[in-house]
Every structure is written in C-alpha cells, then in structure tokens.
Amino acid sequence: MKHVTRQHATIASIASQWQVATSVAKVGRDREGGSVADKHLTPEELAERVGVPVSTVYQWNSRGGGPRFMKIGRYVRYKVVDVNAWEESLYVEQAAG
C-alpha cells in the first residue's frame, strides 16, 4: 500500500508543478508566493510553449507578430499575461454553415 500512496503523491506533485508552469490564463500565486501574472518567460520558454523554433520568436520580435515583449538590459522577456493575451488574439472565428 505504501507504493500506491507514494505513487499518488508523486502524480499529485507532478500535476501541481504542471499547473503552475503552464498556468494558461490563470492569475494566481506561484510556489514562491509571487503572482503568476508577473512571471516572465525567456524566448526559449515562449518557443517551447507555442511549439516553434527560437529563431521564429526572435523574428517576431524584429518584424512583429508575436506577443509584446520587454528588454531588461540585453535580455528579452515576456510577461505571462501578455503571452496569454496574444494567444487569445490568435483564435479564428469560424463562419457558420
């Protein structure tokens, strides 16, 4: 029975981590007590999140078309709330019929 309990605890831990990491359109608190909305993603994290090469993310930055970003010194970062808003703007309404 200990094995099953330990396995359930591991599954619950993984599920919890996934919810914090993905937090698509959720505004809450992360494990450190900070707002998920205030979290910043790197270009690599954004590329992984949307399933595109990192070079595509950098092209969006220079040509437009991607989420709003900020420069912190020489580093590019994306606020999760900005990425969520950008993702929402990508939905295509289908015509009835």
Rank of each mutant, 00 (worst) to 15 (best):
R6E: 10
R6N: 05
Q7I: 13
Q7K: 10
H8Y: 10
A9H: 06
T10C: 13
I11E: 15
A12L: 07
A12K: 09
S13N: 13
S13A: 15
S13K: 08
I14V: 10
W18F: 11
T22P: 00
S23K: 03
V24Q: 06
V24C: 03
A25C: 15
K26C: 11
R29T: 07
R31Q: 12
E32M: 07
G33Y: 04
G33M: 02
S35D: 11
V36S: 06
K39T: 13
T42W: 04
P43G: 09
E45F: 01
R49N: 05
V50K: 01
V50R: 03
G51N: 02
G51S: 07
S55A: 09
V57E: 08
V57W: 00
Y58C: 04
Q59R: 15
W60M: 07
W60F: 12
N61S: 12
R63N: 15
P67G: 11
M70I: 15
M70Q: 14
I72S: 13
G73F: 02
Y78S: 06
Y78G: 01
Y78E: 01
K79H: 05
K79T: 05
V81F: 04
D82L: 05
V83S: 01
V83W: 03
A85H: 01
A85K: 05
E87Y: 06
E88H: 03
S89D: 14
V92R: 08
E93N: 08
E93S: 14
E93I: 03
Q94P: 03
Q94H: 08
A95F: 10
A96G: 09
A96I: 08
A96W: 03
A96K: 10
A96E: 12
A96P: 04
